[in-house]
Design a protein around this nucleic acid. Sequence first.
DNA 1: CGATACATTGATAAACCTCAAGCTTCGTGG
DNA 2: CCACGAAGCTTGAGGTTTATCAATGTATCG
Lengths: 246, 246
Amino acid sequence: MNYHPVQIHSNATSDRCCTQPSERCANCKVRLHSICAALEPEELRELDALAHPASFKSKQTLFLEGDDAANTYNITEGAVRLYKMLSDGRRQIVGFALPGDFLGLTLGEKHRYSADTIGEVRLCRFPRTGFLKMVGEKPHLLRRLHDFAGNELNMAQDQMALLGRLTAEEKIATFIVGMRARWTRLEGPSVTVPLPMTRQDIADYLGLTIETVSRGFARLTREKRIINVPDGVRLIDAKSLESLAA
Amino acid sequence: MNYHPVQIHSNATSDRCCTQPSERCANCKVRLHSICAALEPEELRELDALAHPASFKSKQTLFLEGDDAANTYNITEGAVRLYKMLSDGRRQIVGFALPGDFLGLTLGEKHRYSADTIGEVRLCRFPRTGFLKMVGEKPHLLRRLHDFAGNELNMAQDQMALLGRLTAEEKIATFIVGMRARWTRLEGPSVTVPLPMTRQDIADYLGLTIETVSRGFARLTREKRIINVPDGVRLIDAKSLESLAA
DNA sequence: CGATACATTGATAAACCTCAAGCTTCGTGG
DNA sequence: CCACGAAGCTTGAGGTTTATCAATGTATCG
């Protein structure tokens, strides 16, 4: 249960290969799922000039809680876990960022949580100063950031209700249903729900131990609601899962 | 554990008694603790024109989750509990709003949680349309709203760590220490921490039962860290309480 | 003064955690 | 290609924390 993340930026590789610089944002696969959907074509070019695309290997730390927020990030591929550590090594994962999700939405000077990659990740990095300047000049961009932040806040409060008031089995069912909804938004509906994170990550997200999570999946499998598949689950009885989650 | 809040707006009484309308905001006791601290004198007059001061009796519902967000509110006196209900009556309190706190920060069309008063409450109500218009014209006000929202989000994530990873006693100690910090900001330091909410409210905030909360306070009393006083606690050994909370 | 809401305390039960062992999967190098 | 090791996952047994059920105590308000 003790974690000692090491911050390694040298493993980020530049990723400006295939398209014209001025069109990278325009061609971005996750644009319509992200902040960037608020921008006009010209503004998109402006953002493009700020963007530093990069790839990260698995288990790299993007930043730690308390670090100066020198950059904001837009995930384009892969998944990132966001977490807070307690002084004695206990960990609470506060969210999983998927493609289209934005880290550093709140524009604060310090990161308020740590972030590291789960599997390979591609993202766009935006230096804070340039991004702040752009936000300052474009109230509608700020407004969209604010709307996204409002949504984040609501999701955090829903997660508070999950952590405080649901049983282990309800937590796990809710987690699966929620992940399905998120992947559906990105890639369309599917009965297979990708779960790139480890059982330990899920446990630290749901306020459980790894054993309880494992037993929860086992029980849902025994009850013929899901089947375990590599890096995810297949839903056999989505209805009954949803009723457990509700 | 089942709650059936009834929405009663008729108990709100107008509260425009003592000062000139154009100076109410300028004289507002909580102005410097709230969003309003961002405003110029002239903007303050503009906000003043939008403000509807009101008083509420104890246990009145200001709004329910899902209601159209017709108004935003700035608390000037008293305390409000913000909560989400599950379909079967379980409740999670997502926050307590104290003087200076703003409800409806996120500018969404629907309220994402319910709110009702704890004891008598005074507040300023701002009709959504007028407030939105003002925000649209004043990017620095939006920016301040956004900063407040970022802070809310961070506090929600800290609360996630509390709910998911702390023991009952740690939760209670953290709660007391946190409430003391908030009252200190409003009224200066004191060893007496007001706790206007019921034990059930505290339980629903910390993800515990009322009995466990009661036993927690009893234990902290037995350990000579606190003394129970009417509507609050007195800190005997703040240091040891903080070490429990850390 | 009685009624009601709120709080405390005790006994018991259930959920979840801890500790321990064994199992799968997957990547690496012989 | 297979053997091996590491990391991640599962399962079992037993213990602890917290919930539940029940009774009693205390404060508040008409």
